[in-house]
Design a protein around this nucleic acid. Structure first.
Lengths: 292, 292
DNA sequence: AATATGTCTTCTATCGTCAATAAACATTTG
DNA sequence: CAAATGTTTATTGACGATAGAAGACATATT
């Protein structure tokens, strides 16, 4: 079947949302920028919008004729790239898999309904997370999401983040990164106020906060390492919702203390609050990781 | 053309070397273990050895008939897997490439005479080194082997190795890793004695030494990080042989001081000698990296 | 003259295919 | 009866092919 036009479908759906607010659509390059796709795809979208009677398109004039209906959207299942399908399918299996068990590319591809190369490429990309390993000319071995993995991960995380926090404190207050911190602090206070209902939004805020801190180092290895943390938290806690509200509420307070320490410019205090938060994050992760 | 039998050819060549020393060959499983291939490949090798009149093969009896000649070996060009071909070809191009320039999978594949998927998979695997980056649905961007890269690499390396060295000192003397250190120390002294002629052997010893130190941590991220260092040193100094003898002689002395400190059990001294060596390694790397 | 649109070319993402290789199973041998 | 050999099956590694998407170039519009 070669390639699926999932990018087109996803961008088309997003363009329908944008359509709601205006009478005319902007120029093709502008649309390309806002949808994050090439002009080729934008033109395909415009073509379909016109065909479906949603807009009248003649060169520069793109007049909205009617608001989009639920039926105009592509089903969300069709908007996921093969890569996403493989990632989700694999992660679901990985979380429950035994240490030492093998991965069969062909079998996984068949189960997910994709080609073997998509699976292969995903596994290669995923291998940098240290959870699987390849035996050349042979199968992949699952090293498992174990306690050992969580500990090793937490150790490096602490090294990197303490270093970043100390670098952060040293940054001149004129840097734009401080504005980012202010903004994130406000978001923390807002979420704290509505924690009872919005606690599910914390994980996204958490990631942005830690990535901001890491931004102070300018070291690609530290910045890229956070991808592993983000992956672990994303998938692990997707299937471990226990005590989520309580955990997140506690983490917000730790973040706020951490932010205050950073702003104070006191290195000792910054390191202390940073380590305190990371220790608690580590404990949370360990508590929800099977003992084996 | 599907797959090339480079593994078979390489293993066949290696079996010819082994053939020199004996009158009979061992059992198939034993050969498989010694050549690091499956029995399927061993049997193909035996078949060819018999066809070429090098051995008389009848079930368990494998009698050597004659010593292998130069002509019996496959040309070494045929024994490199596609992966190796891509790696070498790519690295050669990368070292001279400009920051920000693009990589074209198809073009690279054509130049190297391999399929696109081999190139793709190599690039995906290589991307974990932080020297290239993918724009989804589009090209790869070269981030370049720059001074910045070298600095970032050296920073992380120092963090990790100091940590490993401190963990090393704490290990009980009963651990087998100490025997490994003793062995490596002897090798250092031997190489020091014959440095004038054998200085080229240092890089291999260097890698084994540092990997041994890292082995004390039991942290997969630290251990895997050394792959990046090894790659950089391997390829970078393959094209920068300037002052090699002098550099290596100095490094051996640094290693010996470092080893002595480790054996003394003195953490302060271990950290000091470790940092001293890494600083000098960093300086060497920086000195041979273009200023841009 | 700068920006937008129209057209064409090239490259990526993905699939199916097949030889090389590994691995599993069955049979023989010391 | 344990280890080796013989036989069969399944999986990986690599390729070419093709639709989707990006990008380059030419032309038109304000």
């Amino acid at each position: 079947m070669s390639k699926q036009n999932t990018l087109f479908k996803d961008a088309y759906n997003r363009s329908l949302i944008q359509l709601g607010g205006t009478q005319t659509l902007p120029s093709e390059p502008e649309m390309a920028a806002s949808l994050q796709v090439s002009r080729t795809t934008v033109r395909a979208i415009l073509q379909r919008l016109a065909d479906e009677g949603l807009i009248a398109w003649d060169k520069r004039s793109k007049i909205v004729l009617r608001a989009p209906l639920a039926d105009d959207y592509f089903p969300s299942a069709e908007t996921h790239s093969t890569h996403d399908v493989v990632e989700r399918g694999f992660m679901k299996r990985l979380m429950g898999a035994d240490v030492g068990s093998q991965i069969n590319e062909l079998e996984l591809a068949r189960e997910l309904g994709v080609g073997t190369s998509s699976v292969r490429e995903f596994l290669i990309r995923f291998s940098r997370f240290g959870l699987i390993e390849k035996r050349p000319n042979s199968h992949w071995v699952i090293k498992g999401f174990t306690r050992g993995f969580a500990l090793e991960l937490a150790d490096i995380r602490e090294m990197f983040e303490v270093r970043s926090a100390l670098a952060f404190v040293q940054l001149p207050k004129t840097e734009t990164i401080w504005t980012g911190l202010d903004k994130i602090e406000v978001e923390h206070r807002a979420l704290k106020a509505s924690i009872d209902s919005d606690y599910g939004q914390f994980s996204e805020l958490d990631e942005r906060f830690h990535r901001l801190i890491h931004g102070s180092t300018d070291n690609r290895f530290i910045i890229e390492f956070y991808d592993i943390i983000a992956m672990v938290f994303h998938y692990h806690f997707q299937w471990n919702k226990k005590d989520e509200k309580k955990r997140n509420a506690a983490a917000i307070d730790e973040h706020l203390a951490y932010i205050t320490a950073l702003k104070s410019g006191d290195s000792i205090e910054a390191e202390l609050t940073c380590r305190r938060h990371l220790r608690s994050a580590r404990a949370t992760l360990m508590a929800s990781t099977p003992a084996t």
